[in-house]
Design a protein around this nucleic acid. Sequence first.
DNA 1: CACTTGACCTGTCCGC
DNA 2: TGCGGACAGGTCAAGT
Length: 296
Amino acid sequence: MPELPEVETVKRGLSRLLPGLVVASVSSDNPKSFPNSPADVDAFLIGASVAAVERRAKVLLIEFSSKYSLVIHLKMTGQLVFRGRQAQFGAGHPNDSLVGELPDKSTRVIMVFRDGSRLFFNDQRKFGWMRLLPTAEVPQIDFFKKVGPEPLDSHFTSQVLWERLQRRKNTSIKAAILDQSVLAGVGNIYADESLWGARIHPRTRVRDVPEAAVRLLHTALVEVLTLSIEKGGSTSKTYVDAEGHKGSYLSFARVFRREGQPCPRCGTVIVKTKVAGRGTHVCPQCQLEHPGGITQ
DNA sequence: CACTTGACCTGTCCGC
DNA sequence: TGCGGACAGGTCAAGT
């Protein structure tokens, strides 16, 4: 899915576009995408205005004046695309838009506001979901109770990363940083990119990663996530921001989807393999497999 | 507990 | 051109 930088980009877009808008109607074609009852929607969403848009980990929160919030997870292929009152799509639309006329066949939920603008929740694979909860109950959902620290928060130091990694000592470093209870927001793209930055082979067991390498990994994570937010995130296929535009990080990526190309650091050909059940991109020369690396 | 695998879906790409 | 299988940005529930 959208990982932290993509969800943050959507959050920033929606924060500019939504606050103050009043909900007129909500429709959904798929109960798994939006399981709340029509009665709840009528009672807590219709007539409410958007108060704020937030992000925690890879989860978006749209908070309403009714003290209810929409909790939204885009998973692999979810999109939240806003269209203003006048159709913004048409002559002169930006040529980087991946989204045409809406709704389309991936549209699962449509929220219409009183001014005629609309928010579309599109999700090709239907893994994503949004649900309405009292805002006060949001921190109590299972995911938020166990999710780890925000990597771009100033409290997230190298020492904190080291301590959080200790809960997954016996697995690969890649599996560990993908674990949302270790730290929030890292997915397959930024796992590969940050491990390349720290010169750590993704298959290395956590217990074999030296403390100095964890410090490099901390730095790399912060750099990679920050750069990607600057570039509007990564679009490999379906990701778009709140206005339907692609992100450009992948043109800056060093290893992700670059198998067969030279490593920007040493020139060795980047290879694609599988670690932790995920496609994994690595420079076999400069990403060291520390002693005791997991072989599978 | 910690760890791995399969399941959830649709679409696309690649080899035959 | 069609068909089968692998694979795709993420998490869960099961299994060991």
